[in-house]
Simulated assay, not measured.
Amino acid sequence: MSSELLPIENYVPHRDAMLLLDRLLSADADSAVAEVTVPQGGLFLHDAGMPSWVGMEYMAQTVAAWSGWNALHKGQPVKIGFLLGSRKYEAAQAFFAPGTRLVVSVHCDLMGDNGLGMFDCRIHTEDEKELASARISVFEPEDGKAYIPTSPAASP
């Protein structure tokens, strides 16, 4: 696993309130590990904490960080990708408590030349208690921006 890592913004296209991860802890050709401390306030948070379904986005952003890390190590630009879906997202609890440090690990089971991929994903606490797991499918096209419609107001 890599020991020299850049700030998370270098690996994922997410910004501002939509960047949910704090940092990339490790990455290699097949897997990545990231961390997030559940925020005390902000986007998605409820009185009971962060809904566990947000874990799916934590997983997807860790896949994005893995992809960005691999792209940069090949001298390529970071691409936009898309979460297509999941199989068997299971969470041990309904909410993640604010202030909890979560460790998100992803392992690439398959990445096709067409940009379609499948990942085994897990979320644990620092002491390795598993809180959520899923298999997610993603799509990383050559030109992700071509799949995002632009509004007439944003056009010149």
Rank of each mutant, 00 (worst) to 15 (best):
P7D: 01
A71L: 10
W69H: 11
T62D: 00
L83G: 05
G115A: 11
Y58N: 08
A94C: 03
G41A: 15
W69K: 02
V106Y: 07
D143Y: 07
P51Q: 09
T100N: 03
V78E: 05
T125Y: 02
G115F: 10
L110K: 12
N10D: 07
F139P: 10
A17T: 08
D22F: 06
E57C: 07
V12T: 10
A60N: 06
R23A: 08
D143V: 13
I123F: 07
D120N: 13
V38T: 11
K129R: 15
P98K: 06
L19V: 02
L43G: 03
D143C: 10
L45R: 09
G117L: 07
F82N: 08
I123R: 07
G41F: 12
T62V: 10
S133K: 15
T125P: 07
D16G: 00
S86D: 06
L102D: 00
G49H: 08
V63S: 09
V106E: 03
P98G: 05
P141D: 01
F96H: 08
K145S: 13
Q93L: 14
L102R: 04
I136K: 12
D113N: 14
E90Q: 14
L131F: 01
A91S: 09
L84G: 15
A64F: 03
G42Y: 08
K79L: 14
S31E: 13
L19S: 10
P51W: 06
R23K: 09
A48Q: 13
N10R: 12
S31C: 14
L84I: 05
D47H: 14
E130L: 08
D22G: 08
V54M: 12
Y58P: 01
E35L: 05
M18V: 01
V33A: 11
I136A: 13
K145Q: 12
L20A: 00
P13V: 06
R122Y: 06
Q61A: 02
G42W: 06
V36L: 07
M18F: 13
G85Q: 10
A32H: 03
Q40E: 14
A60R: 03
L6R: 14
A48N: 11
